[in-house]
Computed example of a mutant assay.
Amino acid sequence: MLLTTLCYIENADSYLMLHRIKKKADVNKDKWIGIGGKFEKGESPEDCLLREAREETGLTLTDYRLRGVLTFICDPWESECIFLYTATGYEGKLTDCPEGTLEWIRKDEIHKLNLWEGDKIFFKLLNENYPVFSLKLVYENGDQLTEAVLDGRKLKIADYTK
């Protein structure tokens, strides 16, 4: 299982979103996601978060917090354990990202983007300031969400993805 980080940098009423359009063999191709990536040898989740933020945005995060742990299962891709963060403090100037286009998107407009269905679940949890959570997301046939389990309890997906 891959270990990765995912971070949504906040600025007032917006999140910094990454439109993944530059990599060819990419599970996130054409989707809008946060920044982040795979752990390197010897890294903690925070080490990975800070390195990936610098590499993908040019920003140095100064205030961030762990919001949840995601288990992402989507055949034929390798499963991932994702440490989900939000960040409210940063220094530096935003640079171009080698993996796609970075754009500030208003939080109330994010649902209109091409997202993974499960992302709608954790955005709802983030917006409600839900305590640190564990969320398992299972996809079939590419990007069809078939199961969501929050803190060990199966969710009714339609209640979260409307």
Rank of each mutant, 00 (worst) to 15 (best):
C74P: 00
I35F: 01
G152V: 03
A53S: 15
E140Q: 15
E128P: 00
K136C: 07
N11V: 07
K41R: 13
D143Q: 12
V149L: 01
L6P: 00
C74L: 04
K22Y: 10
K112E: 13
A87F: 05
L49D: 08
E55K: 12
F122A: 00
E43P: 05
L155H: 11
T95C: 10
E43T: 07
L61P: 07
R106I: 00
V138T: 15
G34W: 03
N11M: 13
V27T: 03
G68M: 04
E80D: 13
I9D: 09
T62K: 12
D159T: 05
R51A: 10
Y160L: 04
Y139E: 07
I82N: 05
K124M: 06
Y8K: 01
E91V: 06
K107C: 09
E117D: 15
L18S: 08
K24G: 01
K124E: 13
H111S: 15
T57Q: 05
D159I: 07
P98D: 14
G37A: 12
R65D: 10
K41E: 14
K24F: 09
L3A: 05
D119P: 00
L70K: 01
G118Y: 03
A148K: 04
L113S: 06
S79E: 07
C81D: 04
I73Q: 11
A12Y: 13
G68K: 04
L125K: 01
M1D: 01
L3T: 11
K107H: 06
G58S: 12
T62Q: 12
E10T: 12
D75C: 08
G37W: 07
L150D: 01
K112D: 11
E99P: 05
W32A: 02
K136Q: 14
R153T: 14
F123N: 14
Y64W: 15
D13W: 04
F122W: 10
H19I: 01
F123G: 07
W32I: 01
G68H: 01
H19K: 12
L113I: 02
R153M: 10
M17Q: 05
G37E: 11
I35S: 07
H111M: 10
T95M: 09
L70C: 04
W104E: 03
I33Q: 04
T86S: 13
G92W: 01
L135K: 02
E40T: 08
G68C: 02
Y85V: 02
W32D: 02
E91G: 05
K29A: 14
Y130G: 04
L3E: 11
C74R: 15
L50Y: 03
L155Q: 10
I33P: 00
R65S: 12
S14M: 08
V27G: 02
A158F: 03
A12L: 14
L66H: 11
L102P: 06
E40I: 10
N28H: 14
I105F: 01
L3F: 06
E103Q: 15
H111A: 15
I33L: 09
K23I: 14
G142Y: 07
R106A: 10
F122E: 03
T146D: 02
R65C: 09
D63R: 15
L115R: 04
D13R: 12
K107D: 08
L84C: 08
L94K: 03
A53C: 13
G58E: 13
D30R: 04
K154Q: 13
E40A: 15
D47F: 01
E109Q: 14
F72I: 10
Y15E: 11
K24R: 09
L84R: 03
L66M: 09
V69T: 13
E40N: 11
